[in-house]
Computed example of a mutant assay.
Amino acid sequence: MTAPDCFTSELALPYSALNTNGRIKADWLLNLFQDAASHQCHGLGISGFDMAQKGFKWVVSQYDIHIHSHPSWLSNLNLSTWRSPWKNLYEVRRFIIAKKDGQPLISATGIWILIKAVNGKPVRLSPHLPDHLMQPPAEPPELFRVSTPLTEYHHEFPIRVRFLDLDLNQHVNNREYLRWAVESLPEPHCFSYTPVRCKIAYLKEGLFGQDLVSRVRLEFTPTGLDTEHAIVHPEKDIELARISISWSPLTETDP
């Protein structure tokens, strides 16, 4: 993948990206991905600001993040991302964070939808994107399907939507849902496990001042811990997001 198809940037992993276990914050990755995607889309003329002038908004539908190996503080890394349409409705974007020698550490797929600003209805991409950007992806994405509500769970974590949780669309930023899911893992597990895969399905928008809950179901496996999280508006009985996280146990050799 070469320019202009692929956008690449360099970074040194900052101290602010590490959690108390010395591992990369999974939710921090979403800000990194968003910034890289926005930078490339700006150059292509299809950024959120560009589409807003035409009466449209980009909204993220799903993320699938694999943390293959955790980078350490000040690691020199390359971030690469590229986009392709799928079914003339979805904007599929791939991300890879790798060492300078090319060894991939983190890979991810994000899926966006273009909606009308006035009513939130999805639109087809081809009437609103240049013809040269309407090329199908090499491989269809693996979708995270939510078929049933999370009725059985072990823990519930209260959430109040704050002003700083909001994005330019005036609803909860996609990063916050993953942060809420990670924070809802109860003690002592939050200090002894680290996320290695995160699948997120964004279902409804969260708004300022809402009182939400993160409901968590835990399942211990031979290799670690799997958790299922539902971000719910309990008064309206509406699920805003579903997150599935696979966790690996920390060891004495971990940072």
Rank of each mutant, 00 (worst) to 15 (best):
V92I: 15
V216N: 02
S75T: 15
L203R: 07
C198N: 11
I96M: 12
M51A: 03
D165I: 07
W73R: 11
P71W: 04
E219W: 00
G120E: 04
L178W: 04
V146L: 02
Y90N: 00
I111Y: 03
A3D: 10
W247K: 11
S126M: 00
R124M: 05
S9H: 08
D131N: 12
S80Y: 01
D35V: 08
W86F: 15
E187Q: 14
I159M: 11
L178Q: 00
P140G: 08
N119Q: 04
I111P: 04
L203Q: 14
N78A: 01
T251K: 09
P186Q: 12
I111G: 02
K57F: 02
P195D: 09
Q103S: 13
L203P: 01
D226K: 15
N173C: 06
A3H: 13
T148H: 14
F157C: 07
L150D: 00
E139S: 10
I231K: 03
P127L: 08
A26H: 04
L13Q: 05
A52F: 02
D35S: 08
D35L: 04
T81F: 07
G206C: 10
Y177S: 00
S246R: 14
L32P: 08
A201T: 11
L143T: 13
S69H: 13
P141F: 12
D254F: 07
L150T: 02
W73S: 08
V182Q: 04
V92G: 03
P255A: 15
P255H: 12
I97M: 15
N76D: 03
E183R: 05
T81P: 04
P158G: 13
K99G: 11
C41R: 00
S246H: 12
G102K: 08
I238L: 12
L18K: 11
L125Q: 00
Q210I: 08
W180Y: 10
I245T: 07
I67F: 04
L11H: 05
W73P: 00
V118K: 05
L212D: 06
V182G: 03
G22V: 13
C190K: 10
I24L: 15
S147T: 15
V232T: 10
Q210N: 10
A3I: 05
D131W: 01
P188V: 11
I111S: 04
I238R: 06
P85K: 06
C6R: 12
R175D: 05
H42E: 11
K116G: 05
L133D: 00
P222M: 09
G224A: 11
E239K: 01
E176T: 04
E91F: 01
D167A: 09
P127Q: 03
I200M: 10
R179P: 05
P71Y: 08
P149N: 05
S80G: 01
E235V: 09
S80T: 11
G206H: 09
H132T: 09
R23F: 07
F95M: 02
L250I: 13
E187P: 01
I238Y: 06
E183Q: 14
K116L: 07
N174P: 06
